[in-house]
Design a protein around this nucleic acid. Structure first.
Lengths: 125, 125
DNA sequence: CTTGACCTTGTCGTTGGCGTCAAGCTTTAC
DNA sequence: GTAAAGCTTGACGCCAACGACAAGGTCAAG
């Protein structure tokens, strides 16, 4: 299939696919007229990339998963490198959450001080 | 005082101060040779800006606080516009925290699936 | 034959808050 | 008199993941 069909099937833009190629995440054969040609395994790879990005992974984060798929594994996460990325991302997310909670309480405190009569909204309201 | 002293006293770079001026957050008089001249109120303003930025406010978020200070209030947060920003930022932080918690559980679930034997690290460990 | 839907490469723009030169003033210290 | 320190404006760089053109080649349908 050509880039337009891959884009539709994977739910991304053709621009994104060319960018992934430029970043080394996908490859393409070229047909005689210079058009990029893809197959089913590319649909799988791009789907994997988007799934990871939807939970906050960068393209570099996704690379080990792509490599894992390409090396024949049925799942992109069944390689030790992918598992390592999972651990790192979990730690990053946890750091970020801690940071936001600290900020939240600082802002809430300043808010309460600035507006003593104000009803302090609780988290989530 | 000139820009270098203000920078030292407020703990920012001179580049940052010129940037704040360009963004309309601080103003400066010019002495005969073209150098920027500041006074104590500018130290206060820049300190306020940095305090807000340290908890995740953008320069635009800080603007009402600066205006509040400049209009004669002893605190930058004692104006209704500032209070409104507090509310909005609290909501933004809460949204972000909710988003991260959702991501965290998704990643944790995929991780557990990919690595069934792995000990799932709990949040914060 | 021409329209229009594809495809190609290349380049600039986006967002925030500056860092980092560049090239040239002024002022201060010795 | 000169060197160092401080000041000026201006402009590019950064980071991620593309979006949005531009200018052109390709191919099937009518």
């Amino acid at each position: 299939m050509r880039i337009g069909e891959l884009a539709r099937r994977a739910g991304v833009s053709t621009r994104a696919l060319r960018y992934y190629e430029q970043r080394g995440l996908i490859r393409s054969r070229r047909s005689a007229n210079g058009y990029r040609e893809y197959d089913e395994s590319d649909v799988r790879i791009v789907t994997e990339i988007r799934g990871l990005m939807s939970v906050g992974f960068t393209l570099d984060d996704a690379r080990p998963f792509v490599d894992c798929l390409r090396s024949g594994h049925p799942s992109g996460s069944s390689c030790p490198e992918s598992v390592a990325v999972y651990r790192r991302k979990l730690a990053e997310i946890d750091d970020r959450i801690r940071d936001l909670l600290a900020r939240r309480s600082e802002v809430a405190a300043q808010f309460a001080e600035a507006c003593p009569g104000c009803l302090l909204p609780r988290r989530g309201e």
